[in-house]
């Protein structure tokens, strides 16, 4: 493990990372967000979901540096006495989970379909590409709304986790197309290369060629796309939660928090909206920047 880490550090990609201040800054911010989300129980000063710990007397407090604020609630509280800082940390966790899992799902589906289309060609390729065209012609939010709506209609008394599942599937279902297309293109290129032909001459079955030979060589661009798409997925989830069709209200994500803050914005409690919004921007931005850097680092011509 240590040697592979050392080798990566010394490689061209590692060098590019070391010398790009933006990449390092983005990585640090993203790491901090992820770390605090994963260990939210230890990082957050309060638990905003524990109804017993809420004190209505502490409701509507402004952030600590303003008049009337208290250091117990660094970023202030909402109208129910929930600590905004803790809510933001827990909310980021929800957003990250939904974002990452849905991207993982789209990657798996998209890469598999792209490999099949590129490798098999013929009618399967034509069918899958037309399917991609059809999916792309629907706006992502609309599809997600549709699926979420249908899900709720089919399972009105469903458990919360089902709502999560539906949400993740909804986001994944619109994201897989770009992976399928990219992987299909790369597969077509690799398929005509001689190492694939050598494997065929050897008698290796097509499935094994696809997975063991072609797949490792087409994953490069997928990595870049996936990183950037995590940001998009987080924002999509936030939008859906803002609209009320995303995560259930008992586990508020950043989108839900923004929605709540929206309601009280004009009564002067700006902190309920601004801090969740800032966290969303920070998260999406840092992941996006990382993806940008990765794309440049992996591009052989720019090195």
């Amino acid at each position: 493990m240590k040697t592979t880490l050392a080798r990566w550090f010394d490689s061209d990609v590692g060098y590019s990372f070391r010398t790009s201040p933006m990449a390092i800054a983005a990585a640090v911010i993203a790491f901090v967000c992820v770390f605090s989300s994963v260990f939210a129980g230890w990082v957050a000063p309060h638990n905003p979901f524990d109804l017993a710990s809420l004190d209505l007397m502490d409701a509507r407090l402004p952030p600590a540096w303003m008049e009337g604020g208290s250091t117990k609630y660094l970023l202030g509280t909402d109208d129910q006495g929930r600590d905004i800082l803790s809510a933001v940390i827990y909310g980021a966790r929800i957003s990250l989970i939904v974002g990452v899992v849905s991207v993982l799902l789209s990657v798996v589906v998209g890469v598999l379909l792209g490999l099949l289309a590129g490798f098999w060609g013929g009618w399967l390729d034509a069918f899958l590409m037309r399917l991609c065209d059809v999916v792309l012609s629907f706006p992502a939010i609309l599809v997600a709304l549709l699926i979420a709506g249908v899900g709720r209609a089919l399972f009105p008394n469903a458990h919360e986790s089902l709502a999560f599942g539906v949400l993740i599937i909804a986001i994944a279902l619109t994201g897989w197309v770009q992976y399928a297309r990219t992987v299909r293109g790369s597969t077509l290129v690799e398929r005509s290369k001689e190492y694939v032909q050598a494997a065929r001459v050897m008698g290796v079955p097509p499935l094994r060629i696809m997975l063991r030979h072609v797949l490792p060589n087409v994953l490069g661009p997928v990595l870049v796309l996936a990183t950037i798409q995590v940001a998009t997925a987080i924002i999509t989830e936030a939008t859906l939660s803002f609209l009320g069709v995303g995560v259930p209200p008992t586990s508020p994500s950043l989108g839900t928090l923004i929605n709540n803050g929206n309601a009280v914005l004009f009564s002067g409690e700006w902190w309920v909206l601004v801090f969740p919004g800032a966290m969303l921007v920070l998260l999406a931005l840092s992941v996006n920047l990382l993806g940008d850097w990765l794309r440049d680092a992996l591009n052989p011509r720019l090195r």
């Binding site: 001689e194 190492y195 050598a198 001459v201 050897m202 008698g203 060589n217």
Partner: peptide, 27 residues
């Protein structure tokens, strides 16, 4: 296929760039 094998023209494209030489020859 055990008895007939092929050698290709392009030395750069005929070996999988992500595999170790050991795995390539052992395949």
């Amino acid at each position: 296929r055990r008895r007939i094998q092929m050698i290709f023209q392009d030395p750069y494209a005929s070996l999988n760039p992500r595999w170790l030489v050991e795995d390539i020859i052992a395949e």
